[in-house]
Design a protein around this nucleic acid. Structure first.
Lengths: 201, 201
DNA sequence: AGATCCACTTGACATTTGTCAAGTCTTGGA
DNA sequence: TCCAAGACTTGACAAATGTCAAGTGGATCT
């Protein structure tokens, strides 16, 4: 069995949700029928600012970034990969147009749940509301952490902080120009730091 | 009637929660009995890193900041004032020790709900789970926004972005050294920008 | 009221980081 | 396979921001 066949088999979302709160068998079977799969090509833009993103994704394998265009500068605010969930928060949870863009950095194998199915669950399966609540807490802690990281005053310390909390296997897959933007520095600066990591600070 | 007597009368939390999702009268009366009031003096530290913060606060009047100490540098990551809610997310929603410190920047009039009462509501009043879910979505969007702001590449643009989305009346009450830290710059830099706002960028 | 503390400002200077340009290497497409 | 595009690195330099120090004024405490 090839590694990819596994990717086409499992129900990552189910496993993920079940790990937060055990699902009733009714909810499990409902979800099994609703979960869809999709492979996005590298560089594909999953959704653009102003569009409504209707899906809650789990990444089985691949990598994805969220970014804004501000004053024609491309600013990456999050990067997700294998096993992570992602969505446009404003789109999926508030049903408003997304404020951010989402782009694939690798060919990305996803499972996803559509807005109406998710909200059907929220309405009809009480454990889903608890799951969503906990998901949002985790999401928040993650965002707060990113908000803290970028306030660390120098470039090398921001990188160290990031590396301390990241999986090295994943880090080496992140294109450096996006990692630089995520760390609030220019690609040239990141390149120099990585080349001379022994320099002070 | 003095302005302060109003502060001692209303149930801000009830109004706040009710504005998210209409509360059942049972929940309303339950909450009315559980909501407590407290006045914190300026500079008082409401909770410290490592402690469990058990309360969900609404600020009736006053100002509060969340901050971290990293490498003996004080980093402010959020500032809340009149009408805002705040809590230590890890403490209140996960019942784990807080990762951040919370300090009053003014004498601050709060209403608060204790952990066990809030969680009793989550268990027994379904609308409370929906409220909390929505609260967390708002919280997240706010944190994501702060994570974006600090990635804007120059100091003056970060300030402009912040001012565009903030209430000027509140801004002028924020001590400049904390505002500077929140904007990921040194107090001297903020001072210069404010003194010469007409300079380019 | 007087004294002390500290926030804020300002100047001079140091350091970090950004900018621009050139060159190399990799990647993807024709 | 070859070409073109673009990611990454490196150098030289420019600009932004941080650091340090001094001075002012306002707030707070006794």
């Amino acid at each position: 069995m090839s590694p990819l066949s596994k990717i086409h088999q499992n129900l990552f979302i189910l496993i993920y949700l079940n790990s937060i709160v055990p699902l009733s068998s009714e909810l499990k079977s409902f979800l099994s029928n609703k979960i869809k799969r999709k492979v996005y090509a590298k560089n594909h833009i999953i959704n653009r600012e102003g569009e409504i993103c209707n899906n809650l994704h789990v990444i089985k394998k691949g990598m994805v970034r969220g970014y804004y265009i501000s004053d024609s500068t491309d600013i990456t605010t999050w990067i997700s990969s294998d096993g992570d969930i992602f969505t446009s928060i404003t789109g999926f949870f508030k049903n408003e147009p997304a404020k951010e863009n989402i782009q694939c950095l690798e060919d990305t194998y996803c499972e996803y749940l559509e807005y109406q199915d998710f909200h059907y669950c929220l309405k009809n399966f009480p454990e889903m509301r608890e799951i969503n609540r906990i998901m949002m807490v985790e999401y928040y802690i993650h965002a707060e952490n990113r908000a803290f990281m970028t306030r660390i005053p120098n470039a090398k310390s921001r990188l160290s902080y990031f590396l301390k909390n990241a999986d090295p296997k994943v880090v080496e897959r992140i294109p450096k120009k996006f990692l630089a933007s995520f760390l609030a520095m220019r690609p040239e600066t990141l390149s120099r730091i990585l080349t001379y990591p022994f320099l002070p600070k």
